[in-house]
């Protein structure tokens, strides 16, 4: 897959396993909050700017 030269010899599978038991809960939390805020911001513009500006077409 990757070039052997790219692989960091210090990171072995047992090291990964020892550190990553919680992963990716942090990523779920952080990315989830970001996307949720994104949807909220979108909905604010949709509800409070777009819809009141009235019909066109």
């Amino acid at each position: 897959m990757n070039n052997p030269a790219d692989t960091d010899p210090d990171i072995t599978d047992p090291t990964l396993a020892a550190h990553l038991d919680e992963a990716p809960s942090g990523a779920f939390a952080l990315a989830g909050i970001a996307v949720a805020l994104l949807l909220v911001a979108w909905a604010i513009i949709y509800l409070f700017v777009f819809l009141p500006r009235g019909p066109v077409g």
Binding site: L20, E22, A23, P24, A27, A31
Partner: peptide, 11 residues
């Protein structure tokens, strides 16, 4: 990418 960075932070 966030999850990849998380692996780095946890390591």
């Amino acid at each position: 990418v966030t999850a990849s960075m998380e692996t780095a932070g946890r390591l």
